[in-house]
């Protein structure tokens, strides 16, 4: 038991690394996911096929396979095609690329279904009072879609955080990577305790994120009324 507790102070500092890398992936992934969602709903057939194909491929590819493909593939292809030598690029870059790609696929579905769930009558009413189509989307449709998307965004956040645990396989030293280093330095004893500590950290993280999003959902659907004065 005491080995579990002893592991925490060694592991927790590396949580920052995990957060930083996954945070970047979420940021870029959301933006890319938004573009893909628009592509899926747009008029251009080729963009639609591309966006849907991209989502299917990401959905069918295990994370470690994607990690290794990016880790070995990006330098190999960029050397052959562009003559760029990427030997000195930090492993973290590949981690961010991989999980950005994955998160974008998740978000393209979440955002698309949220936007499509908003009754088209909202858009029609907006243009009928004189808003341009763009104004109608930004002022009326998207704010409502945002609330609908929130819970699924939260789930996606938890999911990508857990996929991110595999970053250690390409040598990245985040919290999981550090755990493996600790185990190695202990000559393989007390592995169970270290992993249990890791599991607890991730578990608490997931619960905290869930609670935060539950609060956010409450705030956005009803809370704004609390601040209205007649």
């Amino acid at each position: 038991m005491k080995y579990i507790l002893a592991a925490f102070p060694e592991l927790l500092p590396f949580l920052k690394v995990t957060f930083f890398v996954m945070g970047l992936a979420v940021l870029f992934g959301t933006f890319l996911g938004l573009l893909l969602a628009f592509a899926k709903m747009g008029k251009n057939k080729y963009l639609r096929i591309f966006a849907n194909g991209y989502t299917t491929i990401m959905r069918c590819t295990p994370s470690i396979v994607l990690l290794f493909l990016v880790y070995y593939g990006v330098p190999a292809f960029s050397e052959a095609l562009f003559g760029l030598n990427l030997q000195d690029i930090h492993t973290g870059v590949y981690v961010v690329i991989t999980f950005t790609l994955q998160f974008a696929a998740m978000m393209s579905e979440v955002l698309r279904s949220a936007i499509e769930s908003i009754d088209h009558g909202q858009y029609e009413a907006a243009v009928s009072v004189g808003l341009t189509p763009l104004q109608a989307y930004f002022r009326i449709v998207f704010p409502q879609a945002f609330v609908v998307a929130l819970p699924n965004f939260g789930n996606g956040l938890i999911a990508i955080l857990q996929e991110g645990a595999l970053a250690y396989t390409i040598g990245f030293v985040d919290i999981v990577g550090k755990a493996n280093l600790i185990i190695a330095s202990n000559y393989g004893t007390h592995t169970l305790e270290v992993f249990i500590a890791l599991a607890i950290i991730y578990w608490i993280l997931a619960i905290v994120i869930e609670k935060i999003f539950a609060l956010l959902e409450q705030f956005f659907s009803k809370g704004s009324r609390l601040f209205k004065t007649s």
């Binding site: 009754d119 009558g121 009413a125 009072v129 009326i140």
Partner: peptide
């Protein structure tokens, strides 16, 4: 012009 809809289509978020 102005339009009044059968199912009102009031902006739900306003």
């Amino acid at each position: 012009t102005a339009f009044v809809f059968q199912n009102y289509n009031l902006f739900n978020n306003k």
